[in-house]
Design a protein around this nucleic acid. Structure first.
Length: 153
DNA sequence: GCCAACGTTGGC
DNA sequence: GCCAACGTTGGC
């Protein structure tokens, strides 16, 4: 499948991922997003890496799932922002995946631009009202349309 | 099970 | 900083 994953670039950007090569995607604390990780994400799935809550929200690059879902260790770390006292080790509530760097877009595909596309991106979740989910599937058509936007500027 | 209050996300 | 749109929590 294809995915979009949001990250705030001042926390973790596509450039950070480029340096690290791969990174555990921890801290997902929304059941719908968790279910996507658990049920549908597979190694080698491609990911649009989206920068949110920043000056120019945009799809900033491409990533890939390099490890399928496993218990998110941060839920058991008392000092972590993501600590969950209600989660038990024998029945972990939250999951993580590992994400690998593929490439950084030379020119980010901005949210502002995506909004001008219209029909070809009908139903693309990022553009829909009230969208807050940090991880969601992208149809192959939408995914490839966005890659084409990167090439045409 | 309802629903008000509260917290979070994220664009602007 | 503001606000819309959700999701979660907790009293009843």
């Amino acid at each position: 499948m294809h995915w979009l994953m949001k990250s705030e670039p001042h926390e973790f950007s596509i450039d950070d991922l480029a340096r690290r090569k791969r990174e555990p995607w921890t801290g997902v604390r929304n059941y719908q997003a968790r279910n996507h990780l658990r049920d549908d994400m597979q190694v080698d799935d491609e990911v649009l890496f989206y920068h949110s809550s920043c000056e120019e929200p945009a799809v900033a690059g491409l990533a890939r799932i390099v490890r399928a879902a496993y218990p998110d260790p941060t839920q058991f770390e008392r000092k972590s922002d993501y600590y969950d006292a209600g989660s038990r080790k024998d029945a972990p509530r939250w999951l993580a995946v590992d994400v690998g760097f593929v490439r950084r877009f030379a020119v980010p595909v901005t949210l502002a631009r995506l909004k001008t596309i219209g029909a070809p991106l009908e139903g693309f979740r990022l553009l829909m009202r009230g969208n807050r989910l940090s991880v969601f599937p992208v149809s192959p058509d939408h995914f490839h349309h966005i890659l084409a936007l990167e090439r045409t500027t």
